[in-house]
Design a protein around this nucleic acid. Structure first.
Length: 404
DNA sequence: GATCCACAGGAAATAGTGGCTT
DNA sequence: AAGCCACTATTTCCTGTGGATC
């Protein structure tokens, strides 16, 4: 067993690079913070809060801005006896209906020893639970729905919440909704009645550019690294990678963190640009591997089919070429093959999580546009991941022994 | 120029699962 | 246990597209 050594000192306080680290100020977002601040300010006067809609990609400061401002607001409100302000935040990450948002909100508000089940009740019952809980809290309650775009077009909850008081469902509580969305189009797809009520104030968070990312990274690096550990091109390169890809501060910070770890592993005392490039490749591969592991069985079989076609140099391949290969493999492991339409969806999902690379063609022979798929990583990486899945053994191990 | 082909993907229907109330 | 309720994954049916074909 390798011992836990303590070689070169690189990190001073690496916690500052973790996702859960909460900075006590938000850099490069003055305009957004000002707008947000004034949208919340009616609350301190005891007025019903406005409904606020934030949108922008992940990692551009929406959630941090909300945490900082609400913390400030609640502590400022404490100074006034006639003000009773509280807030609830719900991550709507994997909640794709109003019903689920409602049940999870109820559970967020209830004492944790008597949660309700997230299925089984009629929708109206769940809403009634929700009104009861909110009424119990009273005062002004700000409800933050993070990543609310996951609920798609089922937006009942966004209609009911802002109107609960007007409709007489609650009396003693004033509700404000803060909706946070990663998806710019989400707002357009809301039903008109929701758009009216929910979108009093809209604040857009744009992606960070490379300069802004550098400012942010510099500030984190001051806490995180020993002095003079970073070479002068390290932070600019991290910033450039992240700015090019998503403009996300989270991505930039993860990259910097990883680069530090790679340097540490090599026993180097400085973090230079080579480690950044290496870290970038590692993170990209990790993301793809994660995508591959989180598939359903059918997804795995589709991936296996593309893999074997790639090894036979038959890629890029289109759906109709992949489908027979998929059918053959599914039967080989005693799985009822799905219809072709469904395979289209699976292939689409695989390219969305960057496991497959997709090429669009508009120059088709006797047809309109169509797609071709191929692997986005080396066949070895894919096979290694697929080998870990027991069910796939009968189809993957022959591939491995034949070509590996 | 109308019609056809083969594809992508939307929409609605269906199957199967599991929790709820009565 | 019966009758609801909602969810996920899937199937079935259908529309739109853009070049090829007649």
């Amino acid at each position: 067993m390798k011992s836990f050594d303590r070689p070169a000192k690189i990190f001073e306080n690496e916690e500052a690079l973790r996702d859960e680290w909460q900075p006590n100020e938000l850099l490069e977002r003055e305009n957004e913070l000002n707008a947000y601040h004034s949208a919340l300010s009616p609350v301190i006067r005891g007025a019903p809060p406005k409904n606020i809609f934030l949108y922008g990609k992940t990692g551009v400061g929406k959630t941090v801005a909300t945490e900082l401002l609400l913390e400030q607001l609640e502590s400022d409100a404490d100074r006034f006896d006639d003000l009773d302000v509280s807030s609830v935040t719900l991550q709507c990450n994997s909640l794709n209906s109003s019903y689920q948002v409602a049940t999870h909100l109820v559970n967020e508000l209830r004492p944790s020893d008597r949660p309700i089940s997230t299925t089984g009740y009629p929708q109206q019952t769940v809403f009634n639970f929700l009104w009861d809980e909110l009424e119990r809290i009273g005062g002004i309650v700000i409800i933050v729905l993070d990543e609310i775009d996951n609920i798609g077009t089922d937006d009942d909850i966004l209609y009911e919440l802002p109107r609960a008081r007007a409709n007489g469902y609650v009396e003693n509580v004033k509700l404000g909704v803060v909706g946070i969305s990663n998806d710019f189009e989400f707002r357009d797809n809301l039903s008109p009645k929701v758009k009216d009520t929910l979108c009093d104030d809209e604040i857009e968070f744009s992606p960070y550019n490379a300069n802004e990312l550098q400012t942010i990274l510099n500030q984190r690096a001051k806490f995180a690294f020993q002095p003079d550990v970073l070479t002068c091109d390290t932070i600019p390169l991290c910033a450039a990678f992240a700015a090019q890809d998503t403009g996300s501060a989270r991505q930039a910070i993860r990259l910097l963190y990883k680069a530090g770890e790679v340097a540490l592993e090599r026993g180097d005392e400085r973090v230079n640009e080579h480690y950044v490039r290496e870290a970038e490749a590692i993170l990209r591969r990790k993301q793809i591997e994660r995508g591959m592991r989180n598939l359903t069985t059918h997804g795995h079989v589709v991936l296996s089919a593309v893999t074997i076609m790639e090894m036979q140099n038959n890629t890029p391949a289109r759906t109709r070429e992949i489908y027979p290969e998929y059918q053959r493999m599914a039967k080989a492991i005693d799985l009822d093959p799905l219809v072709e339409r469904r395979i289209r969806d699976h292939l689409r999902e695989l390219s969305l999580c960057s496991v497959l690379e997709l090429k669009e063609h508009n120059d088709g022979y006797r047809e309109g546009s169509y797609f071709e798929y191929q692997l986005n990583t080396s066949t070895n990486t894919v096979i290694n991941v697929l080998m870990d899945i027991d069910r796939l053994m009968p189809i993957v191990s022959p591939i491995k022994s034949k070509y590996g």
